[in-house]
């Protein structure tokens, strides 16, 4: 019933080869086949953002992409962001602001936040709110998340100034 395909991709820096059902979506592959359960599944139709991961540097919905489409790509999940230290500043600021409660939206929220910060986004609360409007959080009311992202941008700017 379910056809399979072989894929090879780099996940958090590791080469992974797998045989997957062609109908398997990327986030289910990451969670259940690779064991990277940090990426979460909230709606499975691209609205909630809980499954957001990086594919070739872009923030992508893991539920709207099939695992076979990720063949040959480089994927980074929340575990990879943490291990490499790329999310370290956000982890500090999210903790300080209590910008998470249940933590279920958090991996996707971090991926979206990083895509904003890495693209040179400003410490502009309205712009940050707009940017994370594809990530649903039922717990916080968003304000602490926006402030935590702002803090990292401000902190980066201060560090750069000091460095220059």
């Amino acid at each position: 019933m379910s056809k399979t395909a072989n894929i090879t991709l780099k996940i958090n820096g590791e080469d992974i080869t797998a045989t997957v059902p062609v109908r398997l979506n990327l986030v289910d592959f990451l969670r259940h086949d690779v064991g990277l359960t940090g990426s979460h599944v909230g709606c499975e139709h691209g609205v909630c953002g809980a499954c957001t991961v990086e594919v070739n540097g872009d923030a992508v919905r893991g539920c709207l992409m099939l695992a076979v489409q990720a063949d040959g790509t480089e994927v980074t999940t929340v575990e990879g962001l943490s291990d490499s230290g790329r999310s370290a500043a956000l982890i500090r600021s999210f903790t300080a602001r209590n910008a998470l409660q249940c933590g279920f939206c958090t991996p996707g929220m971090l991926a979206s936040a990083l895509s904003y910060i890495d693209a040179g986004g400003a410490a502009d609360k309205a712009a940050i709110r707009e940017h994370i409007s594809g990530n649903y959080c039922r717990c916080t009311g968003y304000q602490s998340i926006v402030e935590a992202i702002c803090d990292v941008i401000t902190e980066n700017a201060t560090t750069e100034e000091a460095g220059a």
Partner: peptide, 17 residues
Amino acid sequence: PRADAARLLAGRGRFVD
């Protein structure tokens, strides 16, 4: 700050699924 925040932020949550 919550002690368990770091674990959730690192993608080390332990949810049922």
